[in-house]
């Protein structure tokens, strides 16, 4: 520690000893925050599991109303965006700021594609009268608890979509900072922790996809 005493670069906040301590702290803080995100979605997954254990037949019937093809496309889109975020971090680690910017833009584009597809899926369901809860008017399903399935569906995908929107905002902010020249291989903490957030959004979807779309 004592040998860091001379260097205190401008991006290191005054209360940290050195850049390493700042980077490690930021990353750990983000992981602790991700723990909280997992438990946040955990509540919804718990509701899903309880209702599925009560009404397995409802889930099989109702899942037919979801479009597996578009669900799968969205899965691929999100995986692709995770890959580009990982590539963006690699670029900044190697001081390739141009690569960083390009990868961030591709990520934003993929995230927007995800949201557009989601929007089409939602509007198709609204068209059929599949609204959450008491606004549900669809007649294609016999099951008395069908509105509850769709309530869970809308809550899970809706909260996830909200996270995607926040992610788009964050990545755009990172992009603006990259344009401004804030990042280098010496300092890329915000890129790293935003990347962690984005991967978590991907992780959640990896479970949502089989749980909602792939029930046969």
């Amino acid at each position: 520690m004592a040998n860091h005493s001379t260097s205190h670069p401008t991006h290191v906040q005054h209360h940290f000893v050195d850049a390493d301590q700042q980077f490690d702290s930021a990353k750990m803080g983000m992981w602790v925050f991700l723990v909280n995100e997992i438990l946040f979605f955990g509540g919804l997954f718990c509701a899903y599991i309880v209702y599925r254990s009560w009404y397995p037949e409802l889930f099989t019937e109702a899942a037919l109303e979801l479009n597996t093809f578009w669900g799968a496309v969205n899965t691929v889109v999100l995986i692709g965006s995770s890959l580009t975020v990982a590539m963006a971090i690699r670029s900044v680690q190697k001081d390739q700021i141009k690569g960083l910017k390009i990868n961030l833009l591709i990520t934003i584009a993929l995230a927007i594609v995800f949201m557009v597809i989601k929007g089409f899926e939602y509007s198709h369901k609204f068209h059929l009268g599949i609204f959450p809860g008491e606004f549900y008017t669809f007649e294609g399903l016999e099951h008395a608890k069908a509105p509850i399935f769709f309530s869970i569906y809308y809550m899970l995908t809706g909260v996830h979509a909200l996270h995607v929107l926040i992610g788009i905002g964050l990545i755009y902010w990172i992009y603006r900072r990259a344009v401004r020249g804030d990042f280098s291989s010496e300092y890329y903490t915000p890129v790293e922790i935003t990347g962690l957030y984005w991967h978590l959004v991907d992780l959640i979807w990896i479970f949502l996809f089989p749980l909602l779309y792939l029930i046969e």
Binding site: E37, F40, F41, F135, M155, V159
Partner: peptide, 28 residues
């Protein structure tokens, strides 16, 4: 623990806004 409270209260809020029915016996 706190995130679970957050999601619970969000569900309760939605229960009042949209009547999602996960907790409301009148909705099953």
């Amino acid at each position: 623990a706190t995130p679970v409270l957050a999601i619970t209260l969000l569900l309760l809020t939605m229960e009042r806004f949209l009547g999602i029915g996960i907790f409301d016996p009148a909705m099953g």
